[in-house]
Design a protein around this nucleic acid. Structure first.
Length: 194
DNA sequence: ACGCGGATGGCCT
DNA sequence: GGCCATCCGCGTA
């Protein structure tokens, strides 16, 4: 069975973040930690448009924390939040612009045994990766991957998967933010995330 | 099935 | 000093 195609290219990411967020649904995020591959199908994303988007980290400018959000398209921007969680983004548009897509949920595909070890509190497999902090814990994504390329050549990659038809895509406002709360920039595969 | 609050630490003002 | 692009457990129903 084919669950994973070629890595998505820099050209894929070098477009408007909402477009990339929509098309990232169905793609496969995978991390090879040297013992094997841990991966999941992307089922929830959010677009952060850039410096003019009040909810975007890039709105504060290029600081040490937000540095890699201004990197070239296809870069991983990984940040630490609430004193204990990591979250991973895929940088979009041209280098220096500052837009990205937050990966919010995965359906586990491979390496479930390793995910369970890293997420002992998950009672069901469905709870392994159904949140931005949870999926980073399950895959073992942390500061070490901030600035890594997702387009191949690093241990963390995003590969083509089965396309998700429009009829299965739900668009809603973004979650957990306090600015620009109405903007419809969250993309969810119906019935698959949350 | 909800809603609420505590944990926990780095970063910007 | 205050604010987080969160998660989890506990309370009420």
């Amino acid at each position: 069975m084919i669950v994973r195609g070629a890595p998505l290219s820099a050209a894929f990411y070098d477009r408007e973040p909402d477009r990339v967020a929509r098309e990232l649904l169905g793609a496969v995020l995978s991390l090879d930690d040297g013992h094997g591959v841990v991966s999941g199908r992307i089922v929830e994303t959010e677009a952060y448009l850039g410096p003019h988007d009040p909810a975007s980290h890039s709105a504060v400018g290029r600081t040490p924390r937000t540095w890699h959000m201004f990197g070239p398209p296809g870069t991983a921007y990984v940040y630490f939040i609430y004193g204990m969680h990591w979250c991973v983004n895929a940088v979009t548009r041209e280098e220096g612009y500052g837009s990205a897509v937050l990966i919010r949920a995965l359906t586990p595909l491979a390496g479930l045994d390793r995910m369970r070890l890293r997420r002992p509190k998950a009672r069901r497999d469905a709870d392994l990766c159904n949140g931005p902090g949870k999926l980073c814990a399950a895959l073992g994504i942390d500061r070490a991957f901030d600035g890594a390329s997702l387009t191949g050549g690093s241990a963390l990659t995003v590969c083509a998967g089965e396309a998700v038809p429009d009829a299965q895509v739900l668009v809603t406002p973004r979650i957990g933010i306090s600015k620009a709360v109405e903007w419809p920039l969250r993309f969810v595969v119906r019935g698959d995330a949350r």
